[in-house]
Amino acid sequence: MSDAQATIQKTVTENDVVLFMKGDKMMPQCGFSSRVAGVLNFMGVDYHDVNVLADADIRQGIKDYSDWPTIPQLYVKGEFVGGCDIITEMTLSGELDTLFETNGVAFDKEKADQVRAANA
């Protein structure tokens, strides 16, 4: 396993929720990364952010790791959940709440409901 693959595996194993993104959670540098980080921030999820723009090996490595060609990528308990479109759909359908609840990830249910109400 390459260094990048080992680093990624360690990161997604040691952190319950990890978002690989362009930029960081306070200053995203891509609209798609910004949308996912914005949802997680608003829902009060404690997550680890990895800025792929800071490391070319990780930027390519995360695409190989998940066999997924785009950024952002969300991982919960080591499992790849999806990119921006999937996270958006799962937020609006409530599936993301269920995923977090199943995995013991704390979040603010009222905030999640607010997102859904605003997009109904």
């Binding site: 997924w68 060609p69 479109d85 999937i86």
Partner: peptide, 18 residues
């Protein structure tokens, strides 16, 4: 699944995606 649907589209698009 959602992920499987996306993967199927990625695969169908082949070298367009990169």
């Amino acid at each position: 699944s959602r992920v499987a649907r996306h993967r199927a589209v990625h695969t169908a698009l082949g070298d367009i995606v990169p």
